[in-house]
């Protein structure tokens, strides 16, 4: 604080409170709607919570929405969880291994492989949807977890992050390990992996959100309803031509869809900010 200006201080807090309202309001409205009966919110707006909280959420979790084939949202969340964790574990393990190879070994075509990984930055799934879909279909991976996970786990950013981090580790550490007779495996598991713990935690937060929030890819790869993920499952609930639109059910699903990633951010706030700032470098 440079100078004391009471009006400006008041204005600061007012602006931030407006910011919080903008951020919270849509979620508050959705949560309120998810606690009412369907007919209570069909033509009117409800400003305060209803009494159907337990009923709506247990319906959603057990049976889903009747008009869209009654896939239980619990199953959708399970699918999302498997996909998100698969992406997290896959990305972190393949990129820490390749970063280790690139930093700690000298071998022919090292830079060629480095550039090959770099190229993946420029090919997000959105620009190669059809041919990637064909590849996955030819491999017989449609409607499977590997089909959901594998095409998304090559990551240049995670490899770069580990590479940058490994380069900051003093050379003396590797030399000392070698003098003491540690081979490349021993060095990796006993020294490099424990040192990378904070980076792995930061990546975990970012990649979990990335994986959980995938939309386009699951939309293409899953045609069987029992493989639906929750984020794309909501979309099917929005368009029900002849039926009464049960907004309470849809909104309860939306709340459930954002719960796990939001909880992770709140619990792991520090790792989240670190991961966000470092993966974008």
């Amino acid at each position: 604080m440079i100078e004391n200006r009471p009006t400006l201080n008041a204005l600061t807090h007012v602006t931030l409170v407006i910011g919080i309202v903008i951020v919270i309001f849509p979620i508050y409205i959705a949560f309120v709607a998810s606690t009412h009966e369907a007919r209570d919110i069909l033509m009117t707006v409800q400003g305060w919570f209803g009494t159907n909280f337990i009923e709506n959420y247990s319906t959603v979790l057990e049976k889903g929405k009747a008009s869209t084939g009654s896939i239980s949202v619990a199953l959708m969340m399970w699918n999302s969880l498997v996909m998100a964790l698969g992406i997290v574990v896959g990305k972190i393990s393949i990129s820490i291994l390749s970063a280790y190879a690139i930093v700690y070994f000298r071998f022919p075509f090292r830079m060629f492989f480095f550039w090959m990984i770099f190229v993946t930055l420029m090919l997000p799934v959105e620009v190669r949807i059809l041919p990637t879909y064909e590849v996955v279909a030819n491999l017989g991976l449609l409607n499977t977890y590997p089909g959901l996970v594998l095409p998304l786990i090559a990551s240049a950013t995670a490899t770069f992050l580990f590479r940058q981090f490994f380069l900051t580790i003093p050379d003396e550490l590797a030399e000392a390990a070698r003098v003491d007779g540690a081979g490349p495996f021993r060095f990796f598991f006993d020294i490099l992996l424990p040192l990378s713990r904070t980076n792995i935690a930061a990546l975990f937060v970012i990649l979990f959100i990335y994986g959980w929030n995938q939309y386009l890819w699951p939309l293409l790869v899953t045609t069987e309803q029992n493989m639906t993920t929750i984020v794309m499952g909501i979309q099917a609930m929005l368009y029900v031509p002849d039926d009464i639109n049960e907004w309470n059910i849809t909104m309860a699903t939306a709340i459930l869809a954002m719960l796990p990633p939001v909880l992770i951010i709140i619990v792991m706030q520090r790792q989240f900010v670190k991961g966000l700032v470092e993966t974008e470098k």
Binding site: S98, A101, F105, F107, R110, I117, L123, T132, V135
Partner: peptide
């Protein structure tokens, strides 16, 4: 300070390179 090994670096790189080739470079 680096390790000397003829085949290990390729083995470590293999998963990422295979995924990159099958799901990125080939479709593109």
């Amino acid at each position: 300070s680096t390790f000397n090994n003829l085949w290990l670096p390729y083995l470590l790189l293999a998963p990422q390179i295979i995924i990159t080739f099958i799901f990125f470079i080939w479709p593109a």
